[in-house]
């Protein structure tokens, strides 16, 4: 499901126009990414929590280059699933 479909079904649920909900959708994503960029984590209920951590540089084998390469230090988004969705997935 792409953005348009998501926006469409949200607009039906909340009672907003599609244009309006698309605007809010973009703002929402912007807010979330801005906070992650400032090292602030958050939890979306039932889904899981998001935070950032620094992944240290490490060496790995690159099959294209056929040699070891050193991947640099990087800040990555960390996702941790919520316990509700964990139970939901595994009790089927």
């Amino acid at each position: 499901m792409g953005k348009t479909e998501t926006v469409k079904s949200i607009s039906e649920k909340v009672g907003l126009t599609q244009q309006e909900s698309e605007r809010i959708f973009d703002k929402f994503v912007e807010i979330l990414s801005d906070h992650l960029a400032h090292d602030e984590g958050f939890t979306l209920p039932k889904l899981g929590s998001f935070s950032t951590r620094i992944r240290e540089s490490y060496q790995t084998y690159n099959p294209h280059y056929k040699g070891m390469i050193n991947l640099p230090k990087k800040k990555v988004v960390q996702f941790s699933q919520s316990s509700t969705i964990k139970d939901e997935l595994n009790n089927e």
Binding site: F50, K73, V76, F79, L89, N90
Partner: peptide
Amino acid sequence: AHKRISFTPYKALEKKVNVEFDHLEATVV
């Protein structure tokens, strides 16, 4: 054995978060 949700950030988000270390590049050992 169990199921788990994995999250993959979009390139845009990845880049936004990694601004600090964006200048670093992979080097050959």
